[in-house]
């Protein structure tokens, strides 16, 4: 079985690079998108196994993107990543699989992704 592919969607370039390096170290293949539109293209091109999704983004925000995504794909795991913890209470993010408050300590994100992918594998 090949590497799991993760799509990182975030409007901040440095965050994307940080996530990419960290997740590649974990053994994932990482593709990047800086906005919802680019993310749509990447989704169609490369069929990721999991998406990390920033909430506050210009034009279409993460919550809206999630709603659109769920219309076409109900199963792809999505991890919401935000500097804010408040969106946890927004019922619209409940359509995601996890919610991680951004931190320089990437351990929570990594363990969350690992957990979700494992769960998905177990279900199969």
């Amino acid at each position: 079985m090949g590497k799991k592919r993760i799509l990182v969607i975030d409007d901040e370039e440095n965050i994307r690079i940080l996530y990419k390096e960290n997740l590649e170290d974990e053994g994932y293949e990482v593709i990047l998108a800086s906005c919802a539109e680019e993310a749509n293209t990447k989704m169609k091109e490369s069929y990721p196994d999991l998406v990390t999704l920033d909430i506050k983004m210009p034009e279409m925000d993460g919550i809206e993107f999630l709603r659109k995504l769920r219309e076409s794909d109900k199963n792809i795991p999505v991890v919401m990543c935000s500097a804010y913890g408040v969106y946890k209470q927004d019922f619209r993010v409940w359509a995601s699989d996890a919610y991680v408050v951004k931190s320089s300590d990437m351990r929570e994100l990594k363990s969350t992704i690992k957990e979700i992918l494992k769960r998905k594998k177990d279900l199969k």
Binding site: E12, N14, I15, L18, E21, N22, D25, K56, A83, Y84, K102, S103, S104, D105, M106
Partner: peptide
């Protein structure tokens, strides 16, 4: 706080990368 958070995550994140 929100505006600071992202750059801070990047700074701290890469510092950790250096260490790792």
């Amino acid at each position: 706080a929100h505006e600071i958070k992202n750059p801070l995550v990047t700074i701290g994140g890469f510092a950790r990368r250096l260490l790792e």
